[in-house]
Design a protein around this nucleic acid. Structure first.
Ligand SMILES: [Zn+2]
Length: 290
DNA sequence: AGTTGCGCCTGTATGC
DNA sequence: TGCATACAGGCGCAAC
């Protein structure tokens, strides 16, 4: 599932094929995956909607914060892409037919240069937890979503973590899943980060000391960095914009390994429900603190 | 205000 | 063989 490393890898694989090219909206299969700044879903395709989906714009850059990716075009139009659980942003080669491909919600034609490999960009999402969200850069710029995100997980500092968490009573895991505290972590990388830091997922944020926040910050950055290097984690659905899976799955130390021996201490890993999510941890390496 | 729980959504895996 | 059920989980919102 796309968390920060997967989104960053998608961004990097899109850059060489999109920057400097124009986009033309080709099909809108489901307008309701497109949401306004206030969160409302569009009901149907119209000229205004295509305009807001960067129609006719030339791509200047692709940005990312946490799990949010955005495409920017000349003139300052921007489109926030959130992949949710099963969203994909993929490039398609000339001549390849998309008829019969399920859950294709939006397609763009790429104004190609000579020797370009791809001539279309596709947004697919079977589960539809993902969405496309146009926003601008004007005075009333609707950065609403991005404004609410905490510091990016790849570079967040221990002091930033501490400042945002120290007064909270929530379990560590619940806080780390909260995108307003740190942007980019999901279930997989929270479990990996806590295991690396040796912290129990149910530990109250307010019971964590400075030294432990330093360790936690280091762990989050290190895990995310390594995952980016390995092009992210593919469990089943995730592929990058060129159709390639990530290679970080075999590096996971706790996620998906319930009952198997801890790779640090050989004790069997346990599971818990925290914040409505399956949580895998090592009772020995991540002792509960009272 | 901080925190918790629920529902959305579909493909895959499991049980009877 | 086929149907029912459980599970996966990011996020917005309701409720405490
Ligand atoms: Zn251990």
């Amino acid at each position: 599932m796309p968390e920060l490393p997967e989104v960053e890898h998608v961004r990097r694989t899109l850059v060489p094929h999109l920057v400097g090219r124009s986009l033309t909206v080709q099909t809108i299969g489901r307008a309701d995956v497109i949401r306004g700044a206030d969160g409302h879903r569009f009901r149907r395709s119209c000229r205004l909607l295509r305009q807001r989906l960067l129609d006719g714009g030339t791509v200047t850059c692709l940005g990312r914060l946490g799990k949010h990716l955005w495409i920017e075009t000349e003139g300052g139009r921007r489109l926030d892409v959130h992949l949710g659980m099963t969203g994909r942003l993929t490039l398609v080669r000339p001549g390849r037919s998309l008829t019969g491909v399920p859950h294709v919600h939006v397609t763009w034609r790429i104004g190609t240069r000579e020797q370009d490999e791809y001539d279309r960009l596709v947004f697919q999402d079977p589960r539809r937890f993902g969405c496309l969200r146009p926003f601008g850069n004007g005075a009333g710029h609707q950065w609403v979503i991005l404004d609410r995100l905490g510091p990016d997980g790849l570079t967040i500092k221990a002091r930033e973590l501490e400042a945002r968490m120290i007064a909270r009573h929530r379990p560590l895991k619940a806080a780390l899943l909260d995108q307003q505290i740190v942007a980019g972590l999901g279930n997989i990388y929270v479990d990996e980060s806590l295991h690396r830091a040796g912290l129990h997922p149910l530990t109250r944020c307010c019971a964590v000391n400075r030294e432990q926040y330093v360790l936690l910050g280091r762990s989050i950055r290190a895990i995310l960095r390594q995952a980016v290097v390995h092009d992210g984690t593919t469990l089943r659905d995730y592929i990058d914009s060129e159709g390639r899976p990530g290679r970080f799955r075999s590096k996971l130390k706790v996620y998906g390994r319930a009952g198997l021996p801890c790779l640090k201490c050989q004790q069997p890993l346990h599971t818990l429900q925290v914040a409505q999510r399956t949580t895998v941890y090592c009772p020995q390496c991540q002792p509960a603190s009272l």
